[in-house]
Structure formats: structure tokens, C-alpha cells
């Protein structure tokens, strides 16, 4: 029997009642907007705009999705985002994993100096403007490189990966391999990488979701519409259009898309929220476990 039950007083029971009440409240508050978006995206626009549809779909229609799927700007953004996410994450991993492994080796001369060099940037930072100017002077503006190189590696992720290596790779392994005459390169490919599948998965997800959801770098580094990621297209549909009716920043394609569909505009907006978040929702069940693990590793004091 549960020890908690032994001395459960009336006050305890009341308190547990309150706990369940509060948690249910939190659950509803978070869940409601999510359900609403799904319902709104497939409901009759008139019912959505009037507030008649407030929980479950009314007069189900897929018209919103049909228009979304016909829109070139969204497709183009989607393809670009998939490309930036895949390419960017690959670069992130190539930078992060070997670096973290080198730093995890006690016999790596200079690891302290390198660590200090990296950690220092957490406290002192060039800031937005100098960073932008460097990217511009390198000629990266309006190239796909601007979307992957300025964020090629994140210090926090190096730290997490290093902690993982230090706590999971047995100490004697490197020595044994060195005695056998294996080079560090061979050791890394043949032994370390196969042992680090979990951390590679965590890192791929951390970086991948970051790429998928980011808009700011694209906003400052890209002006060529054909390079726009999905989030910038969404910004035009969800934010700019709403803020002012005659926004000059919006592409003709997007403006026309929303204008000709005045009536449907509301449900189109909810639809694009779903469409753009779908890939993340699809991997969320795996994501959650790995992400939580990542946060936990990160909280271990280095």
C-alpha cells in the first residue's frame, strides 16, 4: 500500500482535490486554443468569424486547405524550409559532435583554452549589428549560406553533448584503441559514433526544430523571395496582412491570395498554422522524450 495513504487526513484529501482541479485547469487552458485552431481550419468561415464555432467544427469544409495547397508561395516556402532544416541540421551535427567529443577527452591538450574561448561568447557578444555586418561583408546575404552558417553551432548543445560523452563513454576505451594502434579518427567513426546514437538524435531534434521554426535570420539576411522559408511566408499571411491592409512588404502573390479569399481568410489562417506545424506534431511523441532528456542532461552541472 502506498505510504501516502496511511496517514491521509481530510486536509490532505482536500489538497489533492485542489491539485487535480488546478492541473485540469492548466490542461484545458493549454488544450483549448489547439483544438480551436484545428476546428476553425475545417469549419464554415462565417461560423468562425461570428464566434458561432467555438469548440467543435461546424459545417465541415476543406475549402481552406484546398486553397492553401494551391498556393505557390506556401509550397515554395515549405520546400525551402525542408532544405534549410536538412542542410542546416547536417552542418550543425558535423560541427557539434566531433567538437564535443574532442572536448570530452581528458588527454586533449588545450581543451581548457578552447572551452574558455567558446564560453566567453556567452557573456560578451558582438550584438546584432556587428554580426549582421560580418555576414554581409562575407557576401552571404541572399544566399542559402546565410541560413546555415551564422548558426552553424550552438554552445549550449556542445556542452550537453560533451556531458553525454563524459558520462557514457568508458574511460579505458580510448586507451585500449590507442594501444591497438587505431587513430583518433578511426576510433571516432568505428566506436564513438555507434555509441552516440541517442545524443545524435537529441541534437538533430534540437537543431532541426530550431531551423524549422526560426524566422529572424531569414528576415534580416534574405530579401530574395525565392529563398524565403515557410516562416517568412507565414509572417506575411498571419501577421503583416493583419497589421495593415496595404502593406508594401507583402508579395503580390500572397496579397492576392488573401484578398481574393476575403471570406475564407480566417480559416485559411488557421489552416496554415496547422500545415506549418504538422511535421513537428508528427514527430512530437518521439521529440518529447528526447527533448526532456536533453534538458535533463543540460541541467547537470558541468
Amino acid at each position: 500500500m502506498d505510504i501516502n495513504k496511511i496517514n491521509e487526513t481530510k486536509a490532505d484529501k482536500m489538497f489533492m482535490g485542489f491539485v487535480y482541479f488546478a492541473l485540469t485547469f492548466a490542461l484545458i487552458v493549454v488544450l483549448y486554443p489547439l483544438i480551436y485552431i484545428i476546428s476553425a481550419s475545417i469549419s464554415d468561415p462565417a461560423a468562425v468569424n461570428s464566434g458561432e464555432m467555438w469548440l467543435w467544427p461546424k459545417n465541415v469544409t476543406l475549402e481552406g486547405y484546398r486553397i492553401i495547397l494551391q498556393n505557390d508561395a506556401i509550397w515554395r516556402g515549405y520546400i525551402m524550409t525542408i532544405f534549410y532544416t536538412a542542410f542546416g541540421t547536417m552542418i550543425n551535427l558535423v560541427f557539434t559532435i566531433p567538437t564535443a567529443y574532442a572536448l570530452s577527452r581528458k588527454d586533449f591538450y588545450g581543451r581548457r583554452i578552447f572551452t574558455i574561448m567558446f564560453v566567453l561568447t556567452m557573456f560578451i557578444d558582438g550584438g546584432l549589428i556587428p554580426t549582421y555586418l560580418v555576414v554581409r561583408n562575407l557576401g552571404l546575404i541572399d544566399t542559402v549560406w546565410a541560413m546555415v552558417l551564422p548558426n552553424a553551432v550552438a554552445l549550449w548543445n556542445i556542452i550537453i553533448t560533451r556531458v553525454y560523452f563524459q558520462s557514457t563513454i568508458p574511460r579505458g576505451l580510448e586507451e585500449a584503441a590507442t594501444i591497438d594502434g587505431a587513430s583518433n579518427f578511426k576510433l571516432f567513426i568505428k566506436i564513438i559514433l555507434p555509441l552516440s546514437a541517442p545524443i545524435i538524435a537529441v541534437m538533430a531534434l534540437f537543431y532541426g526544430v530550431g531551423h524549422w521554426n526560426s524566422y529572424f535570420n531569414a528576415l534580416i539576411y534574405l530579401s530574395d523571395r525565392s529563398l524565403y522559408p515557410l516562416q517568412l511566408v507565414l509572417r506575411e499571411i498571419l501577421v503583416l496582412q493583419e497589421m495593415s491592409s496595404n502593406n508594401l512588404n507583402m508579395s503580390g502573390q500572397v496579397a492576392e491570395f488573401l484578398h481574393s479569399q476575403q471570406q475564407l481568410a480566417a480559416i485559411i489562417k488557421y489552416g496554415v498554422m496547422i500545415v506549418s506545424t504538422l511535421p513537428i506534431i508528427a514527430v512530437y511523441p518521439f521529440l518529447q522524450k528526447y527533448f526532456v532528456k536533453g534538458v535533463m542532461i543540460g541541467s547537470i552541472k558541468e
Binding site: 486554443p33 521554426n213 516562416q231 496554415v272 506549418s276 506545424t277
Partner: peptide
């Protein structure tokens, strides 16, 4: 996991 653009749109 929802992007800041979608949050702003919501």
C-alpha cells in the same frame, strides 16, 4: 514547439 510566427498569428 510552436514557432513564434504561428504564436503571433494565433
Amino acid at each position: 514547439f510552436i514557432s513564434v510566427v504561428v504564436i503571433a498569428g494565433m
